[in-house]
Design a protein around this nucleic acid. Structure first.
Lengths: 216, 216
DNA sequence: GTCTATACACCGATAGAC
DNA sequence: GTCTATCGGTGTATAGAC
């Protein structure tokens, strides 16, 4: 057996845990299955982690952050807010469909930690993170197209995140991409209507000037 | 022990299963825990059900249908489509918040059956049922206010169901009712914009006519 | 028919040989 | 340090006494 540091094997076990979860589900990711997937004896699991909880406490945030990066992506301004939203949401959705396993495992993990006293905080953290990310995304969009939101940012973020989350959950189950994408476009159009041109500020992005809000 | 028919105890076990799941989660709903909750010896479980799967195959549809009834509720026409949607969605959301346990258990059950070969079809059935219910609901709304949807009904239904589903999932985790309700109102307004007045029909909606979308 | 007692597999975690 | 062997507990399901 090649000699590896404790930190290395720790990471190997975390990666193995995700692979087992993706393949057979969170419930099947037992310490034995994880160790076997990593090619390590069972005892090495408890040599690297005090308990299974400790591994989950590292795996969940890592997964959430990975998804966060994929979701935010780049925003390129389009013709108007409607166009920009459509394009960027489509890009986000492509990432979602391309990472089905991550999505599925995260839905399972959320429910799993929610029922384990001592881990529930992970679920709350996870969704707080989603909502924060949504706010950052919406802020970036409005900055890019020079509009402002007509509802409080936290509310707009909940609107967006809840919809995307619900869509992904449904898609993980029925894989109906066509219907999902059509619903996504309709949503983007509706979301665009929650913006208005920014006040003809001053001392800010002079650029293209004020925007006609032609949301028609 | 009082003498009960097999059918009666079957139902008692199903009810007990739900209570255990609501209190301690789906994973904790073992055959032993369910039997104990029902005040029955373990062996009576397998006297009534061939296996645990058989119980889940009865429990899940029962829960889905119960939620379906709560969701559709009554629709009373308001001033316009926007007002009608707001009121009825608020009513639906009240039911959602009032049945937190059912919501939570259903999210767990969905993930559970999705990972059990031989039960995955339940998850697909569940969401197909949601989308059907969404269509019926949207149809009833548009009939009540005499409008029609500008996107295909299945797409509108996916839009609605995914949003509500995502909202409920988030709310089960963070209980932020204020933000959820604000997002719900914003969504209702956006949804209203996906309708247009019905053609002054005649001989079955002449299809062609584009429409003024002035819902202000 | 009903329930006690048990079979058998697998869980998380650890002791102790190497 | 590493891993085999095992502990104590729990899971589904059933055999067999009453």
């Amino acid at each position: 057996m090649a000699r590896v540091t404790a930190a290395e094997r720790r990471q190997q076990l975390i990666d193995a845990a995700f692979r087992v979860m993706a393949r057979e589900g969170v419930a099947a990711a037992t310490t034995r299955a994880i160790a076997a997937e990593a090619g390590a004896p069972l005892a090495s699991f408890h040599y690297c982690f005090r308990s299974k909880e400790e591994l989950l406490r590292e795996l969940t945030p890592a997964l959430v952050d990975r998804m966060r990066e994929g979701a935010v992506a780049e925003i390129e301004p389009g013709d108007d807010i409607r166009d920009t939203l459509r394009k960027s949401l489509r890009g986000m959705w492509s990432v979602t469909e391309a990472t089905r396993d991550e999505q599925h495992v995260l839905y399972e993990l959320t429910q799993y930690v929610l029922r384990n006293p001592g881990l529930e905080d992970l679920a709350r953290w996870q969704y707080q993170r989603y909502f924060e990310t949504g706010q950052e995304y919406l802020q970036a969009i409005s900055d890019a197209v020079d509009v402002e939101w007509t509802v409080p940012l936290p509310v707009a973020s909940r609107l967006l995140v809840s919809f995307i989350d619900g869509m992904a959950l449904g898609w993980v189950i029925d894989h109906n991409s066509g219907e999902a994408r059509a619903a996504l476009d309709a949503f983007a159009d509706g979301l665009a209507l929650l913006t208005r041109p920014r006040l003809a500020d001053r001392a800010g992005r002079g650029g293209a000037g004020p925007r006609t809000a032609s949301h028609a």
